[in-house]
Design a protein around this nucleic acid. Structure first.
Length: 855
RNA sequence: GGGCGGUUAGCUCAGCGGUGAGAGCGCCUGUCUUACACACAGGGGGCCGGCAGUUCGAAUCUGCCACCGCCCACCA
């Protein structure tokens, strides 16, 4: 072991948990030295900015591992890379954190005042924000830590204002009194995308509304009786014969006394309830539309505070709406107007933010019309300028874009980008600063956090200034994220990117797996099902965690399996130990002179080449699970189980072993950055850091001859080991062996298999030996001084014959099928014929053996 | 109501027309073989959710059904 190895690994066993952290500083220095410089085609990724309040969860860990593999890979390939780093101000989440803090001190933000409150949020951000950035370092993410962006930075804020003003000038952004999703918990409007439907069992109440002319009544059904105070009409379907005659008449609204019309509207479902619909334009999105169609009054009876307004009448004003519901029902019952009450299960909107039931109401808000922005963003995806991986998300995106609706962008919060609009009386000014003169008041609302996030790929690079960074790294190449923000974020970035830079912001969108809890439920803090990646790192190391997450990831959701992380840990340990062996055997990258390459060397170089070739393919296809698998099996199986055994048997060259190890370390580095640095550091002759290692993924020469020969060697060795195990013969006991009827192989191959299987190749008499059929030819084995047990041999041969006959019969069956012979590709038929010949020969040879045994 | 994804070894997942179905873990049997017992060697284990169909050939394609999960949607 090298003296350079740190104390933590002095025992000889590698402890990733203690060794890993020392590399982060080295990488930051290396990144600093390079800093996106270089000749090649730049490669950039903008990290999805985590909330400043956030802590690294499993999704982040997988997502960052994915991106880090790409960044390191392209960096090693010599491309100038930039992994744009930063955090999101996360309006609602951050405001909530600070409000909670205030609550602990016994004050509200209202008591503090807006200016002081915002100061407190900034102060919080300085001291506690961005912990997740430190956690990213521990994961090994090669983010651009020197340029950490924040969506509330001054420069970023400028970009936000620029975009707002510009969209306003174009007429896309407008202010309107419109039905919005009101979150009573937040006391703010929220967008459609922040609403989730939940199933709830309410009571469906049927209420009689008397006709004003006294000629009868109509019965309406509702789950929210309290909204009847704001009813503006009763609607029936125009085709409904039951009510056709009533259209144009009026009813007198109970408890209120208002006379409201009966109108005809297609929206009404004849089959639902009584076929009569009460219309409350101010408190239901459908009723709002009906109201607009019929010019109905919008009577707001529930305020933004969730309480009944004065318009609800003196008896109810000021009551919380659910209390008012009971009161209204009671009062209606007293009048004998409640006709029926049945439990009714349906879906109702809830706020994802506060968890409160959304109150649809009419409010003065800012909106952004998305239809014009959507056009080019649709084209970008249909033309494959932006590609989704897996590509089924393309359709999901396009479907949503086709029916895109106006986006409510104002929020009644204090933390965020304040809307750059100023009012003085009836005057309105849009811009970053108030105009000259007294009395201008700024719009108190802030923008939806996603409005600023939508600018992330270019605002982080200095836009609207024409910076060198923007020139060099925009558009970025890859965006990797979870599918739940495809509309919230991805679609909007594409729209804004095209609108403001004229270019698509990224060309490949990777939708990584959602990692579920081991039991299949969603990982969530509230359910207690979350698994903390930082704990995984503390237990198994960051390399193992990265490897495990990428290995378990796929094109679909997966359950978290700690097994995979353990598998990564084992690979890490294996690499370390393999390095020790190579060094102990004198492996070094120093020294010159012509390399002598044995068959084993040529084989290993070829295997490494094959692995590198498929790894390159997996990177291009963003198949990180397959990449992990390739790395694992190349290191475990090819390198350690076979090649290093050849090396120990004197059949491989230490120098070549060191060279191949270098290749494998480079191959594994993007996925296992820490241990590969640690191993590289120890390898004699290694220069620089692995993170800077260039042209890592270029395969050496491939020898198909060596691949074929060693494949046969492995077959011989494996068959011999099985033979030994079967009869309890020690691996060290030398056997005598002969191969007959084989077409492969060379003296060097024989030496290889002989050395690993402890076989002395001598002519062995068939009757004194066991015969083992191989893919080509037969292996005869015999112990030196011990005769074979005829009975055991008889049983074994009988079984082997049966197996061969079985295969032979299957093959014959296929070939007897004329349609197979005539329609299947010729080479397949030929291959089947060869198989048949092989099985027939095998069966015959074994039969001869069996007969000889009997004599 | 519409759409998408899943159902393969005890567990977590690959494979997605070429006919003997794979990995990791777990299990069984050996081995402390001087890199590694976080190891090595050998082994057992699967009517590839069900039913039909297409095909010379289906775990792989098509249709229907059954469960499980997700997304979208204005039915009071």
């Amino acid at each position: 072991m090298s003296e350079a190895a740190p104390a933590s690994i002095g025992s000889g066993r590698y402890d990733p948990v203690t060794d890993e952290p020392r590399w982060i500083g080295e990488w930051l220095r290396a990144a600093l030295a390079r800093d996106g410089a270089g000749e090649g085609e730049p490669f950039a990724i903008a990290v999805p900015p985590p909330n400043v309040t956030g802590r690294l969860h499993m999704g982040h860990a997988l997502n960052q591992s994915t991106q880090d593999v790409l960044i390191r890979y392209h960096r090693m390939a010599g491309r100038p890379t930039r992994w744009i780093n930063g955090t999101d101000h996360a309006g609602i989440a951050t405001q909530a954190v600070v409000e909670k803090q205030l609550a602990a001190e016994g004050i509200t933000r209202q008591e503090l005042g807006r200016e002081e409150f915002v100061k407190r949020v900034w102060a919080w951000r300085e001291t506690s924000g961005g912990e997740i950035i430190e956690q990213s370092k521990r994961l090994g993410s090669l983010l651009d830590y020197r340029r950490e962006r924040f969506t509330m930075d001054e420069a970023y804020a400028k970009a936000v204002v620029e975009v707002f003003v510009c969209l306003h000038e174009k007429g896309y952004i407008y202010r309107d009194r419109y039905m919005v999703n009101w979150d009573p918990g937040l006391c703010s409007a929220i967008s459609d995308l922040e609403v989730e439907d939940r199933e709830v069992t309410d009571s469906l109440v049927e209420i009689a509304y008397p006709l004003s002319d006294g000629s009868g009544e109509v019965v309406v059904a509702t789950v929210r009786p309290e909204t009847m105070l704001g009813d503006a009409a009763v609607a029936v379907n125009p085709t409904d014969d039951r009510y056709r005659a009533l259209v144009g008449k009026t009813v007198t609204l109970p408890l209120v006394g208002r006379e409201i019309p009966i109108v005809a509207d297609d929206y009404v479902d004849v089959a639902f309830g009584t076929g009569c619909l009460k219309v409350t334009p101010a408190h239901d999105p459908n009723d709002f539309e009906i109201g607009r169609r019929h010019g109905l009054e919008q009577i707001t009876v529930i305020g933004e505070d969730g309480n009944m307004t004065a318009e609800a009448g003196a008896a109810y004003a000021g009551l919380p709406s659910d209390e008012a519901r009971g009161r209204v029902l009671k009062d209606l019952a007293k009048l004998g107007l409640v006709r029926k009450e049945t439990p009714y299960t349906h879906t109702v909107p809830f706020s994802q933010r506060s968890g409160m039931r959304v109150e649809p109401l009419i409010s003065l808000q800012w909106f952004c019309d998305m239809t014009k922005l959507a056009g080019p963003a649709v084209d970008a995806v249909t033309s494959d300028a932006v590609r989704f991986h897996p590509d089924r998300w393309k359709r999901v995106y396009l479907n949503w874009m086709d029916e895109i609706r106006p986006w409510c962008i104002s929020r009644q919060l204090w933390w965020g980008h304040q809307i750059p609009v100023w009012y003085r009386g009836d005057e309105v000014h849009v811009g970053a600063e108030a105009p000259e003169g007294e009395g201008w008041v700024r719009d108190p609302d802030v923008l939806d956090t996603w409005f600023s996030s939508a600018l992330w790929p270019f605002a982080t690079l200095g836009w609207p200034e024409k910076t060198a960074d923007l020139e060099r790294f925009y558009p970025t190449q890859v965006l990797s994220t979870a599918r739940d923000i495809i509309f919230l974020w991805v679609a909007r970035m594409i729209m804004m990117g095209i609108e403001f830079t004229g270019e698509i912001p990224f060309s490949d969108v990777i939708m990584h797996s959602v990692i579920q809890a081991p039991d299949g439920r969603r990982m969530s803090k509230s359910l207690g099902t979350g698994v903390d990646p930082i704990e995984m790192i503390a237990a198994h190391g960051a390399d193992a965690t990265r490897f495990g997450l990428l290995l378990m990831s796929s094109q679909q959701d997966v359950r978290f399996a700690e097994d995979k992380i353990r598998q990564g840990r084992q690979l890490v340990t294996k690499l370390w130990n393999a390095t020790s062996l190579v060094i102990a055997r004198g492996g070094s990258l120093d020294g010159d002179g012509p390399d002598e390459r044995t068959l084993a060397d040529k084989w290993m170089i070829s295997r490494a080449g094959v692995a590198i070739g498929s790894a390159n393919g997996h990177i291009v296809a963003f198949d990180f699970s397959a990449l992990a698998d390739t790395i694992y099996h190349t290191i475990f199986d090819d390198f350690c189980d076979w090649y290093l055994e050849f090396l120990k048997a004197g059949q491989a060259t230490p120098k070549v072993a060191a060279q191949v190890l270098e290749q494998l370390l480079a191959l594994a580095h993007p996925m296992l950055p820490f241990v590969t640095e640690a191993c590289w550091e120890r390898l004699p002759g290694a220069k620089g850091l692995m993170v800077d290692h260039e042209s890592a993924f270029s395969p050496g020469g491939t020898s198909f001859q060596a691949l074929r020969e060693v494949s046969y060697v492995k077959e011989v060795v494996t068959a011999t080991r099985a033979w030994r195990t079967e009869r309890g013969v020690s691996p060290r006991e030398e056997l005598l062996g002969t191969i007959e009827g084989q077409t492969l192989g060379s003296p060097e191959a024989a030496a290889l298999s002989g050395s690993l299987a402890s076989i002395r190749w001598e002519q062995v008499a068939g009757s004194a030996a066991s015969m083992i059929p191989l893919s080509s030819g037969r292996l005869l084995l015999s112990r030196v001084d011990v005769a074979i047990d005829p009975e055991a041999e008889h049983a074994r041969l009988t079984e082997a014959i049966a197996r061969a006959q079985n295969e032979r019969a299957r093959s014959e069956g296929m070939l007897a099928n004329e349609r197979f012979v005539s329609r299947a590709p010729a080479e397949l038929v030929e291959a089947e014929r060869a198989k048949l010949a092989r099985f027939a020969a095998e069966a015959a040879a074994l039969q001869v053996e069996l007969d000889a045994l009997g004599q």
